[in-house]
Design a protein around this nucleic acid. Sequence first.
DNA 1: CTGAAAGCGCTAACAC
DNA 2: GTGTTAGCGCTTTCAG
Lengths: 364, 364
Amino acid sequence: MAIQKSSAPTIIDVAERAGVSRATASRAMGGYGRIAESTVELVRKAAAELGYRPNEVARAMRQGRTRTIGLVIVADFTNAFFDRATKAIVDAAKARGYQVLITNTDEDIAAERQAIETLVDKQVDGLIVVPSTSAVHDHLASIQTSGKPLVLIDRRVDGIIATSVTTDDFSGTEAAVRHAHAMGHRRFGFLIAAEGKYGHSSERPALLISTVEDRINGFLSGCADLGIKARQQSWMFCEDNPRDSDQAVAKLLDQPKAPSVILTSNNDMALALLKTAGNRRLAIGKDISLITVDDSQWAAAMAPGITVVARPVESLGAIAVEKLLAEIDAPGQKAEKIVLPTELIARGSVANLVMYPENEPENY
Amino acid sequence: MAIQKSSAPTIIDVAERAGVSRATASRAMGGYGRIAESTVELVRKAAAELGYRPNEVARAMRQGRTRTIGLVIVADFTNAFFDRATKAIVDAAKARGYQVLITNTDEDIAAERQAIETLVDKQVDGLIVVPSTSAVHDHLASIQTSGKPLVLIDRRVDGIIATSVTTDDFSGTEAAVRHAHAMGHRRFGFLIAAEGKYGHSSERPALLISTVEDRINGFLSGCADLGIKARQQSWMFCEDNPRDSDQAVAKLLDQPKAPSVILTSNNDMALALLKTAGNRRLAIGKDISLITVDDSQWAAAMAPGITVVARPVESLGAIAVEKLLAEIDAPGQKAEKIVLPTELIARGSVANLVMYPENEPENY
DNA sequence: CTGAAAGCGCTAACAC
DNA sequence: GTGTTAGCGCTTTCAG
C-alpha cells in the first residue's frame, strides 16, 4: 500500500514513482501523444498505487474548460416542472461527461444577474437558463459578449440571439379549450400565474413571459375558432403565491355566471383550485372542471385524474444539453428556436356535459 | 468604452491600466493587506472599465478551495422530498457564498461512487450526500481519507463517522399509528418502498436504509404500545416503481380482512394507493384511510387533504449546509448525529371510525 | 518516444 | 504601501 501523504498525490508523484517525467506521466494518463504501451502500463500502475486522481481544477485552468455547465433555474424548482427539467439536464450532462452547477433565483432578476455572473466567473463552459420576465436581459446579452454558449429553456426572450428550447404552449392551450368545448363547456375560466406586484387581477399585466403569452394566445385562438365570446370567458392573473391564488380562485368561482371549466397555467394554480374546490365540497370533474398545464405524478394519481396539457420536459432538458454541448464543441452554430409539441392528456377532471348535461353547474 | 479584447481581461490587464503591479491590483480587488484607499479606487475603476471579472478557477487553484460543495442525491429527485431538500441546500449555500455541483444517481451504488469521485476530482470543498443502502460504503470512507468534509442527510450510515442530519421517523411513524388508532382503526396496512430486486413482497428485505428501518421500528413500537397484534397488520415491501407499487397496493387491499388504514413510507407509495383507490372508486378518508410520510403541496391541496408525517426538509438542508461549512472553515469538528423532529399533520384522509363506525370498511 | 520548460490567472511570501 | 517573484497542478509546445 502507498504511504499516505498529507495532501493528495499529484502527477509529479506519479511521475517520480514511475521513474518518468511529468510530461510522460501526463501523456500516459491522458492517453494522447506518442507513448510506448509499456510506459503507459508503468505509469498507470504507479498512479493506482498512489491512489492518484487528476486535479480537475488545474486541468481546467490549463485547458481553459471546466467540463461544467451552469444551470440557472429562475423559478422555484420545487415546481413539478422545474425539478423534472433539472433532473433531465443533470442526467444528460452526466452522460456526456459534464457536471452541473445549479442556481435558483426565485424569479428575482437581480439574483438572476448575479447567479449568471458567478457561474461565468466559475468558468462554466456554457449556460442553460430559464429566463425571467422578458423585459430586461442585458445580463443575458453580457453572457453572449463573454462568448459563453447559452441555451434558453422553457421561455423565449426576443431580442436575444440564442438557441431556445421551448414547448408549443399555444397549441397545447388551444387543444385544452377545444377539448373542454367538445365536452360541452361554454363558460371558461382562465387562471394565469404571472410574476409582478399586483396580487391578482383580471387585468392583463404588462410584462409576461413567453410561455404565458403563448398560453393566452392559444386560449384566445381556441375561443375565437369555437365562437366562445368574451363574456363567456373569465380571466384572472395572479402572482404565484398561496394567498393571491386562493383569492383569485374565489373570484373566479364567485361570479354570477361562474365558469364550468377552469384552465390553470401551472401546477400551483391547479393546486389552488383543488384546495378551494375541496373546501367548498365541489367535486372536480363534476361540479367544476379543470385542465392544467404540466403533467405530474399527482395529477395522474388523483381521483379523478386531472386532464393536463403535458409538456415533454425530459426531452426539453436533454435537447437543451445537446444543443449547448454542440455549441461548446464547435462554437458558431446558428441559433435555433426549437419548439417541442405538447400533448393533451384527457383524464377525468373535465365533466362531460354532453352526455350528462345535468352536471352543468348553473349556480353555486 | 474599453477595447474589446479577444479573451477576457485578467488581473494583469487591470494592473497595467491602473499603472500598478499585479499584486497591488489583486490586493485592491480582494480588499486585503495594506493598501492605500486611493489605489483601491484607481484599480476598481480600471477593472470596471475593462469589465474585469476574477477567474475563479485560477483563484481556486491558488487558494486550494473552490467555494463549491458537491451534492449527491442518490434517489430520483423528482421525488417531492428531494427537490425541496435540493432547493434548501442550494439556497443555503448561496447565502454563504458557495455554489452547488449537483449529481443524481438513481439509487445506483456504482453511479454514486463515480459521482463522488468526480466531485472530489473537481475539488469541491465538501460533500453532502444522501447515501444509498447502508451495506457498502467504502466510497464514503474514501471521501473521509481524502480529508473532504462530509455531511450525510436523510439517511444514516452506521460505520461512517460523519455528521448526519436526519429526521425522527421513528416517532413520526409511531405518531401516525397512534393517530389512526385514536380514530378507531384496528387493521393497519404498511406499504414500504425499499430498494432491491424482489419486486414486492410481504417479506422484509435484508438491507434497508435507515429511514425505512426507523419507520418500521416506529410502526412496530406504536403497535406494541396500543396492543395491535401482528394479525392486525399487513406489511408490503415494494420497489419504488409503478408496476410493483400497483401490485403491492392490490395485494394489501385484496386480503380477506383488508386494512382500514394504510401507512405509506413515501410519496410514490401514497400516489400508488391513491391511484388504485381511485380506480376502484374507493373514497379516501372514508372507504380507505391513508397516512404518508412527507408532506407536499398536493397532499395539502387534495380533497380530502392527506394526513402526513411532515419532515422539516428545509431545515434539514439548511442545517446540513451549516454543518458542512463549519467543518470546511474549521476542520476537526466532532461528528454529530442531528435528528430533527417530525410532525403529524392531520387532514382528512383518515376516517373517523369512532364518530362514524359505520364507515368501517368491513368488506370490499 | 520522452524530457525540459513555459505558462494558464491568481495570490501570498518576502522584499523594499 | 507597493513591487517582485514563486508556484498551485496540469498540459503542451518544442527539442532531442
